[in-house]
Design a protein around this nucleic acid. Structure first.
Length: 303
DNA sequence: GACGCGTGGTT
DNA sequence: TAACCAAGCGT
């Protein structure tokens, strides 16, 4: 870290390397050792990790991901599994519809792509549960393709580093061009850059109290250079959870996950007092395909 | 574009 | 301790 280009010419104006290169260099020494980043991790395993990581913290994903790639090492193996087993194996990662969609994506890959996870972003986006972020992440991290990858971490880094704002704006189409403009020219380094910016946002340029002293590009950050101004505009509404249908659905599904077979409606009553809300949530789980009703009226995970 | 969708750790 | 936060997606 001693001799940056230009620093050996005492009279020259400093010309620091581009911020993208600096962030890639920082990543080499700061990256977490996450299992899905191991060299040789195949695109299917990367897809599984990316879907699990949608809104769920790394620490909770790690053990479940290991179990999934052990049990279902290929798309075809998951495609052949029952929804009930997949929902059970999802455990308490949250948003269990993701588990169903991942299974549906595995079926689509098996049927439409000869069992191989595509590298093309448009083909990836056509898979259930795969959106703008996940498609590019799989193309880039799973297949090594140069792709701009924008998640909430990247939006926050760009908001501060480039635009001088305290918080990320809602997702926009220009996010992709913003981050692509910072990527190194070399393709292999551009791939590293995509994961490196996410890591910077996850470890240093965090939402709560950013650790600017540890930031490799702190001296070129538009937000710091502007004096770290506070966020302007309405505060983001944090979604409620207590008392919502989401909480009730979670409790209902928790009972069914733990049950050996179909359970009668009476067995579900204790999880929530309000019978109207309880019935509504059970119905929505049926509609989502997360729950099935047997001929005799009991409830179970879908076989 | 706003909203609904789980869960649990951190502050 | 209630609020905040965590690699989004689909409608």
């Amino acid at each position: 870290m001693s001799a940056l280009p230009g620093t050996d010419r005492s009279t020259a104006v400093p010309s620091p390397e581009p911020v993208g290169e600096t962030i890639v260099d920082w990543y080499a020494g700061a990256a977490r050792d996450l299992p899905w980043r191991a060299p040789g991790t195949d695109p299917w395993a990367v897809l599984v990790s990316e879907v699990m990581l949608q809104q769920t913290p790394v620490a909770r994903v790690e053990p479940v991901w290991r179990e999934w790639v052990r049990r279902w090492p290929t798309p075809a193996s998951l495609a052949a599994e029952s929804p009930a087993e997949v929902i059970r194996a999802w455990g308490k990662l949250g948003y269990p519809r993701r588990a169903l969609r991942l299974r549906e994506a595995a079926i689509a890959v098996t049927e439409r792509h000869d069992g191989r996870v595509p590298a093309d972003v448009a083909e990836l986006e056509a898979l259930p549960g795969v959106g703008t972020y996940t498609a590019r992440a799989v193309s880039c991290f799973g297949h090594g393709r140069r792709q701009p990858v924008v998640d909430t971490n990247v939006r926050r880094v760009v908001a501060r580093l480039v635009h001088g704002r305290a918080e990320a704006a809602p997702a926009r189409a220009t996010d992709l061009t913003d981050i692509a403009a910072l990527a190194p020219d070399d393709d292999a380094r551009a791939v590293r850059f995509s994961v490196a910016v996410m890591e910077l946002g996850a470890l240093v340029c965090v939402a709560g109290a950013p650790r600017c002293p540890a930031c490799p590009v702190r001296d070129r950050c538009a937000w710091r250079l502007a004096g770290s101004p506070a966020h302007e505009g309405p505060p983001r509404r944090v979604q409620k959870f207590a008392g919502t249908d989401r909480q009730v659905r979670g409790r209902l599904l928790d009972v069914l996950r733990g049950a050996d077979g179909p359970v009668p409606a009476d067995a579900l009553a204790p999880v929530w007092d309000d019978p109207v809300q309880r019935a509504r949530c059970l119905d929505s789980l049926l509609v989502d395909g997360l729950v099935e009703q047997t001929a005799d009226g009991r409830f179970t995970l879908p076989g």
